[in-house]
Amino acid sequence: MINDLYISSSQFKVIDGNGEMASTYPASTTGSPQPTPIGAKSVGCQCAYGLNNASSEITVNVEVYGNKYKKYEAVFKLPVS
């Protein structure tokens, strides 16, 4: 059974420490999202973003839609090292 929730970089809004939106960046990454059965994990998927400003923290807003257009939202504040 395949889960009906798919998350890709288009659902991520990355904001730098100055409040500016970041864009995906053409970098060498490993792993790609793949259909994953309920209860399993897709490990190692990556996506690169380029920040306009040096930042010690970024904000990542995630918005995805599941079955019957149910909206799921989350906000993460993440350190940049």
Rank of each mutant, 00 (worst) to 15 (best):
P33V: 06
A22Q: 04
Q34G: 04
A22I: 03
V62E: 15
S8F: 14
Y25T: 08
K13T: 13
C45M: 02
A48W: 13
S23V: 12
T30H: 10
F12Y: 15
L78A: 00
K71G: 02
A54Q: 15
S55I: 01
K70W: 09
T29C: 12
Y49L: 03
V80M: 02
P37D: 09
A40V: 13
V14M: 02
G66S: 06
P79N: 02
N67S: 15
S56G: 10
S10M: 10
V80Q: 02
D16Y: 10
V75L: 10
S81N: 02
G50V: 04
D4T: 08
V62L: 15
Q34S: 09
Y6I: 06
S10V: 07
A48F: 13
E73V: 15
V14E: 07
D16K: 04
V75Y: 13
V62F: 15
M21P: 03
G31V: 03
E57P: 01
V64D: 13
G66Y: 07
I58N: 00
E73P: 08
L78Y: 00
Q34E: 04
I58Y: 01
C45G: 08
F12A: 11
S9L: 00
Y49D: 03
K41W: 13
V75I: 11
G17R: 02
A48R: 11
E57D: 12
S55G: 07
N52G: 01
E73W: 15
Y65L: 02
Y49Q: 05
E20R: 15
F12C: 12
G31R: 06
I7D: 09
V60H: 02
A27F: 10
Y72Q: 15
S9N: 05
N61W: 14
A74F: 12
A48T: 13
C47H: 08
I58F: 01
G39M: 08
N3D: 07
M21W: 10
S42I: 05
K13E: 10
P33L: 04
C47G: 07
Q34I: 08
T30Y: 10
V14S: 03
S56P: 04
